[in-house]
Amino acid sequence: MPRSRNEPLHWLFAVLGGLVLLFIIAPLAGMALDTSFPELAETARDPEVRQSIGLTLWTSMAATLLLSVAAIPFAWLLARKDFPLKHLVSAIVDVPVVIPHPAAGIALLGILSRDSFAGRTAERFGIEFVGGPAGIVVAMAFVSLPFLINAARDGFAAVPERIERAALNLGASPTRVFFTVSLPLAWRGIVSGLVMMWARGLSEFGAVVVIAYHPIVTPVLIYERFGAFGLKYAQPISVLFILVCLAFFVVIRILTRRQDHVVR
């Protein structure tokens, strides 16, 4: 881009941008600075905190991985095929983002409770949704799924269709084309969708708390400590949880960093 003269208007925009950044950083920094290292260390040793962080991490990962099996092929379909009511289908995919999450939890509770068909069937296989990790997984998956589907769809849409056609022409079956061409080329979009879905899942409070207060996930624990003991007791666990999540994101980003392929 050619360098252009900075107009006063652009300076105003920069100031506004700075305010936005400050708005994000200030509360987090304030909380982090308010928390001493001994407090943090003590919180990290608390078995209830450890358990809840562990539970939150694995349920959100399980939600992401389980749903990705269906969501990624579905995303390809949305990127590549035209079908009747496609706009409606795309809108339905976005519904979990726009509805209030406690309402989503209530809706899920309705179909997963012990009185429901799904609840009874699952119980027969020893799976309890209400008040169990399975319920947490479902609640997390419900509210976070759109992030994966939308990012993966954009990833697939960015793969030139000609490249898939060329693969078909070379005698590859559609299955082989999907796994050897479409999926690797859309990989960046998909990974970013997986990370987004996971992040959204592990931060979920509203839907999870309706289905399973216990076993307790970290967002619920933070809320519980705040309610029972006040701000000072909720801060260290918040900081700890944020640090653990950030560490995971960084590791995932590094592990999935691949060479940028120039698509000709």
């Binding site: 000609r162 056609r165 060329a166 693969a167 070379l170 005698g171 079956s173 120039v262 698509v263 000709r264």
Partner: peptide, 30 residues
């Protein structure tokens, strides 16, 4: 498509950008 034995070379080649030239050529080996 897979049974036609009509090999199409696109104007922009449509090579697989994530594979080496070797793997590109080997892709269509029957």
């Amino acid at each position: 498509i897979q049974k036609r034995r009509m090999a199409l070379v696109y104007q922009d080649q449509a090579l697989f950008p994530h594979m080496s030239v070797k793997r590109n050529i080997a892709y269509g080996l029957p």
